[in-house]
Computed example of a mutant assay.
Amino acid sequence: MTARQGCSNGSIGRAAKPDGSAGTKSTFGYWQIVVDNRSYFAHRLAWLYEYGQWPTMFLDHVDGNKVNNAISNLREVTHKENMSHYWGKHRFTHKSGINRVPHYHF
């Protein structure tokens, strides 16, 4: 992640790499950055940097790209809204026709 993608290297300090990037990808696909020995999701740090306070709700990546942490791509949503966006992007269709039921091939 670079400063253009929504997080200032100034807030990361010496953890930034020479190319201006910082952090690692989590197992969930989000950028994580360690600050003062504590791990944070980069999109939450970007929100804090831009607005001066932590988000009060869940943060949604508008375009669905978990590594696009541009502030214009982040919005606060309720848990219900966040989950509806998740299921909209990860819809399973079972052979019964019922959505959200994974279809396993044995």
Rank of each mutant, 00 (worst) to 15 (best):
D36M: 08
V35H: 06
R38G: 09
G23C: 14
N99V: 09
Q53M: 10
W47D: 00
I33V: 11
K66T: 09
A42S: 01
G97A: 08
V67D: 06
A15F: 00
K25E: 09
Y30R: 02
Y86T: 02
H85F: 12
S21I: 00
N82P: 06
D36I: 05
T56A: 14
K95L: 08
H43V: 00
Y40S: 14
R14C: 05
N65T: 07
S39T: 07
Y40F: 11
Q32E: 13
R38P: 06
T93R: 12
S84E: 10
T27P: 01
N99A: 15
S21Q: 08
H103K: 13
L74T: 08
Y51I: 06
V34W: 04
T27M: 02
R14I: 04
H61F: 05
R38M: 08
S11K: 01
A46I: 06
L74E: 06
S72V: 10
R75N: 11
Q53V: 04
R100L: 09
F41I: 05
A42R: 00
I71G: 03
P102W: 07
S8F: 02
S72C: 13
R100C: 08
K25I: 12
G23Q: 01
N68C: 04
Q53D: 11
H105P: 00
E50T: 07
G10L: 04
H105N: 13
Q32T: 10
N68T: 09
V35P: 03
Y104V: 13
H43S: 03
W31E: 04
N73Y: 05
N37G: 07
Y86S: 06
